[in-house]
Nucleic acid binder design. Structure first.
Lengths: 244, 244
DNA sequence: TCAAAAGTGTTTTATCTACACCCATGA
DNA sequence: TCATGGGTGTAGATAAAACACTTTTGA
């Protein structure tokens, strides 16, 4: 079934005469791959924008919350189990011209995770692949709909969220080292941080890290201490982007 | 026209068989009145929740952006011209049970302004009135739908936004004094600030304030210098809530 | 000249910044 | 024993916190 079988004027319309809208969720799934921030894209199977790259997403069903819809699409379209991800709402996008089918309001979500798989096999997820966020933002026509703008907002949200919450750790697989966590900040913020000062702030922040007592041998040099995520959701004091 | 004239099962449904949703905007209009943070409420004219207090809002039309819809509802329901307000999107709320008519997704907006009028007269706006935010949040059943939760989110957003943007000035009528601006922070954050330290930070922040050179006589004491809003949208360095 | 409120200055304390230096490991 | 990268320590600069003090007005 396609969505452009609506009324004669092409608009989606409810049977009551009240103008209704198609509501979708779109997912900005971010992870760090090959030392870059990457976003998961899909090749669209259907019109409009068939064959074009887009954010994964789909219709919200009437019996689920928006958050549940995001979780479901995550699993269906990308075969990713959202259990270990950070998932937060980014906002609603509903400009009249954003979808040629008529008024479609999408609720964008931001999902952050570590070591996310490259989906494969015969499912919908087979059309999914990772792309560096910088590649997407460098080309205004890289994605279908207004998805480039949504990715830009998602990146800014991610940068700001790293300042005052502990979600940076969700980019790391447990256990992780402090230099790994620091590299997350460097990649997302696009600037180098002083290792010494980063360590001091990260270890001082209450509930951010939990030392395991173990160490991980490196390719070269001294083994790094291993940590797990702490229990605090917020970073206090926050890490400001301007600080080193 | 009411919205519950849908299909036999009561659900809103598109003519194509695709399940569609009613999309609305709801406005959290905050101002400072009588030394308190106040939110504008309306008495609902129609079912559901007829006669109950709720956030002002209404349906999004197919030919307008979500932002435009918020501006239009602001004018229609409250007779407030949004020109001088700060208006930003808060997020989408779409739990299945939030509206007895079926799936209704609302996009909540946050509007901040100063010296907003008490709407009067024979219009829709006559049903609108100001209430202290603390009164609303003290009673989980104070408002229709999930509006109490939305107001709670709006308050938290307002508190955080004051930390890193210059929007606090939109709570003041120009020209304003530094003690007036400080009082805005104190009311929103719910804690007193050191006048001396506040002054230093506010005047040092680039683009926050513009001195007019004028002064305003007080009821008692030395006249206060008058300022206008500066041009910077962001506060750097930010004012953290923890700081005095 | 007194009260009140704006505005300035100062001391103490905490934090950031930059950078030197030490430690633990593999080759 | 050397290179490599993790980890510690520290001095100077910067900013916050608390509070004493001065200025300007109306009564």
């Amino acid at each position: 079934m396609t969505f452009n079988e609506g009324a004669a004027d092409g608009r989606l319309r409810g049977s009551t005469g009240v103008e209704l809208s198609l509501v979708t969720v779109d997912l900005n799934i971010f992870t760090i791959r090959e030392d870059q921030l990457a976003v998961l894209l899909v090749e669209r199977a259907n019109a409009p924008f068939q064959g074009r790259a887009a954010l994964p997403g789909g219709r919200v069903r009437t019996d689920e919350t928006l958050h549940e819809a995001a979780h479901r699409e995550l699993l269906e379209e990308t075969a990713i189990d959202g259990g270990r991800l950070h998932l937060e709402q980014l906002g609603a996008y509903g400009d009249p011209g954003r979808d040629p089918r008529g008024r479609v309001v999408t609720v964008a979500y931001l999902a952050l995770g570590s070591r996310l798989p490259v989906p494969e096999g015969g499912t919908d997820a087979a059309r999914a692949y990772w792309t560096p966020v910088s590649d997407v933002l460098g080309d205004p026509a890289a994605l279908a709909f207004d998805h480039v703008r949504i990715v830009a907002d998602a990146l800014e949200r991610t940068r700001r969220t790293l300042e005052y919450t502990t979600v940076a750790t969700t980019f790391c697989s447990e256990p992780f080292t402090l230099p790994e966590l620091r590299r997350v900040y460097e990649i997302v913020w696009g600037r180098d941080l002083d290792a010494s000062n980063f360590r001091r702030r990260a270890t001082r922040a209450e509930g951010f890290l939990e030392a395991t007592g173990e160490h991980r041998p490196q390719a070269a040099g001294r083994p790094a201490a291993l940590y797990r995520r702490g229990k605090a959701p917020l970073l206090s004091p926050p890490f400001l982007r301007s600080a080193s």
